[in-house]
Computed example of a mutant assay.
Amino acid sequence: MNSEKENFQQKFDIPKSLFYRFSQFVGFLLGARFFIAVLLTFALYVSTFFLFNQDENFRKFVFDFKVHGIIFCTVLTIFAGGIINQFYDFEKDHIVKPFRTRLQSFIKQKYFLYVYLFLSIISLGVAGLISYRVFLFFVVYQFFMWFYSHKLSRMLIINNLTFVSLTLYPFFGMMVYYETFSKKVLLMAVFLFLILLCIDIVKDTLTKSVDKAFGYTTIPNYFKNKNTRIILVSLLMITMGVSMKLILRTGISGFMAYYFTTGLFVFILCIYLLLNHTRRNNFITLNILRMWIFIGIIAMLMNGLEGKL
């Protein structure tokens, strides 16, 4: 391992101390899934203000410290969840993500665990200051984050459903906090759930052999390629149906209407790529769906700004 670090350092001609500190920093960010947490934080703020929060003006929202506290606890929990997940998946990631694990190797695993405990305790401490209901909400969230990494990530179908549910859990919390229950919000939640489920299954097709070697029972391993394609195509067709219902039955307008309409063609492209099964096409499909979620966040932001101005 030391020779790998030295070769990596010599290749880029970086001073030893600077290289070591920088590698530790980047390794920690990747281990905590910092960039995913940043994206989810952005999505939480956008959805909270423009979707769940129907009545408050911007000034009142800015000074609603309870909401900021909940989002802060969510971010810490996501950091902690990323750390504990990479702790359990370290051997698998060493093959699937060699560059990332090489950077993470500059930090001993015990320090990741220390940070995991620290972030979890801070998150629960802040949640307890907000209210006991928020505290219980994050106790459940953190428990399932750990249980997913420890056990559920290896179980057929449950792994995918749990991963997607944990991703959407903070948004569900905000929906309950603002008591925003409507047909439009429900359909948008189903739409996002289906896309995230497709992303997770497609991701599993790219790590099929490694998952099998390390005992992860995934849909591509259990149902094989043909049936996995049928499942993915079916999910995308259902997603298209949800999109059409959003367009025709909920009165959605503006940028979000354009987003869901254009999404029909995006999903048709994804179906075409999946039916022409190659590893490259699956990789392209995965990134198209990920990008489409990001575009959806931007569309919601633009739609909200248009409505508030």
Rank of each mutant, 00 (worst) to 15 (best):
L246Q: 07
L18E: 09
S165W: 14
F42S: 12
G263M: 08
M256V: 05
T262L: 14
D13A: 11
L289S: 00
A189R: 01
A189F: 15
Y169E: 06
G296M: 05
N281A: 02
F106W: 02
L129Q: 10
N281S: 05
R290S: 06
L232Y: 04
K245H: 09
G31R: 11
K203S: 07
F12S: 01
F112C: 04
Q104H: 03
I230R: 11
Y45C: 09
T217G: 02
I247Q: 09
L119C: 06
V67W: 01
I230W: 08
F63L: 13
G27I: 00
Q9R: 15
N2S: 11
A257L: 15
L274A: 00
K224G: 00
V176M: 09
Y272R: 00
V210I: 15
V26L: 13
I231C: 05
I293M: 09
F214N: 05
D13R: 11
K203W: 02
Y141E: 07
V46H: 03
Y45P: 05
F143C: 07
M240N: 10
N287V: 02
I121A: 15
K110N: 15
N53P: 09
L248C: 03
L51A: 12
S234K: 08
K224Q: 11
M188I: 08
F135W: 10
S253A: 12
V38Q: 08
I298S: 10
V67A: 06
E6F: 04
F87V: 14
S153G: 02
F8P: 00
I268N: 00
D200Q: 13
K212H: 07
K110W: 12
K183R: 09
Y132R: 14
G125T: 05
F22N: 06
R290L: 14
K66D: 14
R133T: 13
K245E: 13
V67N: 05
I238E: 04
F112R: 04
T205N: 02
L289A: 00
S123K: 06
A43W: 09
M155I: 15
T250P: 04
E6A: 10
F22R: 06
V38N: 07
Y114M: 12
F25G: 06
V202H: 02
V242L: 04
S47Q: 09
I288A: 00
Y111G: 05
H68K: 03
V164M: 04
F138I: 07
S3R: 11
V202K: 01
Q9H: 02
F294I: 15
F147T: 01
K60Q: 15
G215R: 02
Q104P: 03
N287R: 12
R154F: 08
H94K: 14
G307P: 00
V96Y: 01
D204K: 01
L124E: 03
V62T: 12
L275W: 11
S131Q: 07
I247C: 06
K110E: 15
S165G: 15
K108A: 14
F99M: 11
K60I: 10
I107N: 13
I78D: 08
H277R: 09
F90E: 13
L206W: 04
S182T: 11
N7I: 07
Y216N: 05
S182R: 05
V233I: 15
V176R: 03
V139Y: 06
N85M: 07
R33Q: 13
Q104K: 13
I238D: 03
R59Q: 14
